[in-house]
Amino acid sequence: MRIKEVKAWWVRIPIETARQHRSDFGQVRTFDAAILRITTDDGIVGWGEGKNAAGSAGNYGALVHMINHEIGPMLVGRDPRDIMPIWEMQYNGTRAESAADQGHAMPQIARRGMSVAAISAVDIALWDIFGKSAGQPVWRLLGGRKKEAMPAYASGGWASVDEIGEQLTSYLKAGGFTGVKMRVGAMDGPPHISAARVRAAREAIGPDVDLMVDAHGTYTVADAKRFIQLVSDQNLAWFEEPVIADDKTGMAEVRAAGNVPIAAGESEATRFAFRDLAVLRSADIFQPDPAFCGGISEAMRIGTIASAFNLRFAPHLWAGAPCFFAGLHVCAASPASFVIEYSLGANPMIHDLVEEKVEVKDGMIAIPDRPGLGFTISERFLEAHAQG
């Protein structure tokens, strides 16, 4: 079996005005991603996804060009089941052969950002192919699943102090969730405004629902510490991305300043960044995004680091179907995982891009048991929203 064709598209799906929201990323009017299809010479198709932009919007022209004109030609003719060698080949670039011989990484200079986003898309698609060729779900190839279904939390929460309680309560009713996440930080201005929204949220949902907050890395260390003090009595399940990912020592300072678990990682790429988070004691919960961190392969390695440091693992899954399903399989196989992110904002990249119905029932989401990643892309829908 050999790779015959590699094709990526920038898929941009408009979000209807009534379902749009505003956060620190601005008004979110579209859902964008790089969607990848890899086809083998015996007709097996694998689907992947790469992300290089904030939130769900952004420009994917450069990433798609990189996949189609730089990465793709290197993959044609290779056995798609050589997933790890292909990952290292892309990461190490022209020194891939030397790195393989010497037994350690020798990455190219452009080893982060868009490069790893491209690697992520390829890796997810290759695992999809591997599962389909073996007639097994990907979680089986990763070592097995620990549960047939996993708890999910509702992710959203942009409403004002007067409306946040009603918004989060509607989430709880939507899928029987027992946990919700809301956004705080720069979208509100000073920390006391976010704190007031958190208090209103807690009052509305009650003391027994897990409440998480996400600042998208928009606080300074001082403001993040102030926010923790202001909400210290609200029993937060975690405080996500309090400061920018580049300030890991600052994040460790925030973590040490309060009693709220710190979650981070959606802005990080590769196991090396998560190693630093662990060593610096910057986070309690790792949140790699499979479409940005390096794919399924790297997400599993990151999960191993979490397990080794007795940390927890809850991937960032505000994404399209290939990334979301990849996260389901990784969580099913990782000993450190405990919960699934399920977006309650408008997400046509999951719900409209695939033929299957993706839903949460009684707060749980089923782990797919079909070969590969377990979804069917609506190619008609994809083509209707592909750019260029």
Rank of each mutant, 00 (worst) to 15 (best):
Asp42Ser: 11
Ile124Gln: 02
Met364Pro: 00
Gly103Glu: 04
Val180Leu: 06
Ala57Thr: 14
His351Val: 08
Met212Gly: 07
Ile38Asp: 08
Tyr219Lys: 09
Gly295Trp: 01
Val116Ile: 13
Asp42Phe: 07
Ala291Gly: 10
Ile367Trp: 00
Glu148Gly: 15
Ala314Leu: 05
Asp188Ile: 05
Ser297Phe: 07
Gly206Ser: 08
Ala252Gln: 03
Ala245Arg: 10
Gly165Leu: 03
Met187Gly: 15
Asn347Pro: 00
Trp139Asn: 10
Lys147Ser: 14
Ile83Tyr: 01
Phe239Pro: 08
Gly143Asn: 04
Gly175Trp: 00
Glu49Trp: 04
Ala117Asp: 04
Phe274Pro: 01
Asp223Trp: 03
Gly55Ile: 09
Ala33Thr: 10
Arg183Leu: 13
Lys146Gly: 14
Glu97Gln: 10
Lys51His: 15
Val11Asn: 08
Ala100Glu: 12
Ala283Phe: 04
Arg19Asp: 15
Leu277Ile: 08
Tyr91His: 11
Gly165Tyr: 01
Trp127Ser: 06
Val354Pro: 00
Gln108Arg: 14
Ser133Met: 14
Thr30Gly: 05
Pro348His: 09
Ala306Ser: 04
Val279Cys: 03
Glu148Asp: 15
Glu148Met: 06
Ser232Asp: 15
Gln287Lys: 08
Ala125Ser: 01
Glu166Ile: 12
Val28His: 02
Arg281His: 14
